[in-house]
């Protein structure tokens, strides 16, 4: 694009301004959080349990809770979600049932997360008797992540060129061999990127977990899925709504931790995507 053309391009200029605004907005926001957190957050904050006194309180339990929730969500939602996507795209005949499954999955992706919390409370906490535990939270978040995983995985699988499939079948490959050796490697980067997006949504979800019932005070970091539910987003909520000003710093500190966690997840997914797309070519 030449210089001359760019100058006459008001839409492009507007887009550049918008991008800069987003970037600077994010920087200002992070700086504000950092400033707020710098008053009253020390090393102990990473390890300590939530407690009465502002000093000595920490987000150890909440951080451990969020890591557990991410692990459970991954273990539950990824196999089911990617499996469903492969089934719908590669195996299922185009019948009315699959059409219904498709539209349900697509519509569920837009349902507000608090609705999933109510479902989780009725189903996992009450009906299945899990109580307000990490396990119930993980199951709820897995259900929350599922539609996103299915929709993005399907999109990635659908983008695999039809010629690749036909060529493999032409060489006598079975359906599973086609999926395993052709489709998954080719669609892998798209699936990983999509799943990561679905994951970051669940990692930051506070509303569904608050509905399940989270701990206000917790003296220990959860070590098994059977332990009571706690997480970074709900801990941020608890601290942010406390009426003593000092807790605002703790909320900001936990918010930065959550941002860092999401950043690390996105970095890992970007690395995986790069490797996979390199391998496919």
């Amino acid at each position: 694009m030449t210089r001359h053309k760019r100058r006459r391009d008001p839409v492009g200029a507007a887009c550049r301004v918008a991008a800069l605004a987003v970037l600077s907005g994010f920087l200002v926001f992070t700086a504000y959080l950092g400033f707020a957190a710098s008053r009253g957050v020390g090393i102990d904050f990473l390890r300590g349990a939530s407690s009465v006194a502002v000093d000595g309180t920490g987000m150890g339990p909440a951080l451990a809770g969020t890591l557990w929730l991410l692990l459970l969500t991954a273990v539950l939602a990824l196999p089911i979600g990617i499996g469903t996507a492969i089934y719908l795209e590669e195996y299922a005949p185009r019948t009315r049932v699959t059409a219904v499954i498709e539209s349900v999955a697509a519509n569920l992706a837009g349902v507000p997360s608090v609705i999933y919390g109510i479902v989780g409370l009725a189903l996992f906490v009450r009906a299945l008797g899990m109580g307000p535990t990490i396990l119930a939270g993980g199951c709820t978040l897995a259900v929350l992540a599922l539609p996103g995983v299915i929709v993005t995985s399907r999109t990635a699988i659908r983008r695999v060129p039809e010629g690749l499939r036909l060529a493999a079948y032409g060489l006598g490959a079975t359906r599973w061999q086609v999926v395993r050796n052709q489709i998954l490697p080719a669609a892998g980067s798209g699936i990983v990127a999509g799943c990561c997006a679905a994951f970051t949504r669940t990692a930051g979800a506070a509303a569904p977990l608050l509905v399940l019932g989270t701990a206000t005070y917790m003296s220990f970091a959860p070590q098994t899925p059977a332990h009571p539910l706690t997480s970074l987003p709900t801990q941020i909520f608890t601290w942010a709504t406390r009426s003593q000003e000092e807790f605002a710093a703790l909320a900001a500190g936990a918010a930065i931790m959550l941002l860092l966690l999401l950043l690390i997840m996105n970095l890992i997914s970007a690395l995986v995507v790069r490797r996979l797309s390199g391998a496919a070519r």
Binding site: V52, P132, T214, A215, T216, Y217, S219, H227, P228
Partner: peptide, 24 residues
């Protein structure tokens, strides 16, 4: 709650490893 929190805190200090959860 303020008393529960203070009591739990003291309990955990005296009994390291105790697992207390408070909900409201």
């Amino acid at each position: 709650y303020p008393l529960t929190e203070a009591v739990s805190d003291a309990f955990v200090r005296e009994n390291p490893g105790a697992r207390i959860v408070v909900r409201v």
